[in-house]
């Protein structure tokens, strides 16, 4: 158990015993290595289930809307906290009911990448030691460079600790990261054909399980556009055109709202990488409207605001 974990448990226990919250939302060990599950604690004696490590890739903010009557405490790494704040800004949550317990995050491991590397061998144990990721199975043991298996979005994350928190556990980390969206610029040097080819190739394997949508804190619509059938707008088959359009519109819908947690890719059973889309929408709203989601309770989201001077360089002129 790390120091951070014991402070998390301590804090959770105090909040519960003092009656400040009815429910603590955190992470617990999942059933398999590299898995963390959401954990709902109401009984202070249960706090020892709480963990926090490289496997905690879900965005817990997702689950808050399901408990509108309760006073909640949420163990928040940076993007979880951002998720909560953004949902408050969108009037989906009542901040008064929520205690954000901020914790520092080191990033999460990209599980699909590890599994692809290990191949058809069963992973029985995964450990992090310094800058190495140790993966063990029945008759193999591999030591992988940790940095290569950290999620891309974590590498560009500016908010390892939540920008707004009610309680801070552990050392809050500030980021000095210079992000000029080089990944996006380099992708954009491709031709339109190549770009489409890349996405079609990646999205081809999508099985339309919608885990990406269900895990996303800002995808909370009671009836998602893809489920609308009066009229049917877009196809629900797992054909590549339908997959492409589904992901295109989902990316559009999370523009200015996505908190770059990467949960949508982490949960994908097919290991589909949606990070590039998350990064692109992050860049669009940052560069066009100087907006970052979930960092302030005051700033309205860009799709809910407008200015006379907003850029319109893309408008066609007659000559």
């Amino acid at each position: 158990m790390s120091d951070l974990e014991s402070s998390i448990r301590e804090t959770a226990k105090n909040l519960l015993t003092e009656g400040k919250v009815d429910l603590i939302l955190g992470y617990e060990k999942g059933a398999l290595p590299l898995r963390a599950a959401p954990c709902f604690i109401t009984d202070p004696t249960d706090v020892d289930r709480l963990v926090f490590d490289y496997s905690c890739d879900l965005n817990l903010a997702k689950f808050l809307r399901e408990h509108p009557e309760k006073k909640l405490g949420i163990i928040s790494k940076g993007c979880v906290g951002r998720g909560v704040i953004h949902l408050v800004v969108e009037n989906q949550l009542n901040k008064e009911n929520i205690t954000i317990i901020g914790i520092p995050c080191q990033g999460v491991i990209n599980r699909s990448r590890v599994i692809r590397k290990i191949g058809e061998r069963e992973i029985l144990e995964v450990k992090v030691e310094n800058d190495k990721l140790l993966v063990k199975g029945k008759d193999f043991e591999e030591s992988l460079p940790l940095d290569d298996y950290i999620n891309n979005l974590c590498k560009t994350c500016h908010y390892k600790s939540p920008p707004v928190a009610d309680i801070t556990v552990g050392e809050a980390t500030a980021s000095s990261l210079q992000d000029n969206f080089e990944d996006i610029t380099s992708f954009e040097s491709k031709t339109p054909g190549e770009k489409m080819e890349y996405f079609k190739d990646e999205l081809n394997r999508c099985i339309r399980c919608y885990a990406c949508r269900e895990a996303c804190p800002v995808c909370y619509c009671s009836l998602c556009f893809i489920d609308q059938n009066k009229p049917v707008w877009f196809g629900k088959t797992a054909d590549i055109t339908d997959n492409f359009i589904f992901h295109m519109i989902r990316a559009l819908h999370v523009a200015g709202r996505c908190v770059s947690c990467g949960a949508c890719s982490s949960v994908c059973p097919m290991g589909i990488d949606l990070n590039l889309l998350n990064r692109k929408v992050e860049q669009i709203v940052k560069e066009r409207y100087n907006f970052e989601s979930g960092i302030s309770l005051e700033t309205p989201p860009p799709m809910g605001a407008h200015k006379f001077e907003d850029g319109q360089e893309f408008m066609i002129e007659e000559d």
Partner: peptide, 14 residues
Amino acid sequence: RRFAILRDLLIFMG
């Protein structure tokens, strides 16, 4: 705003 974002994203996807 809507078109700006839509256009950027569509172009990004090819």
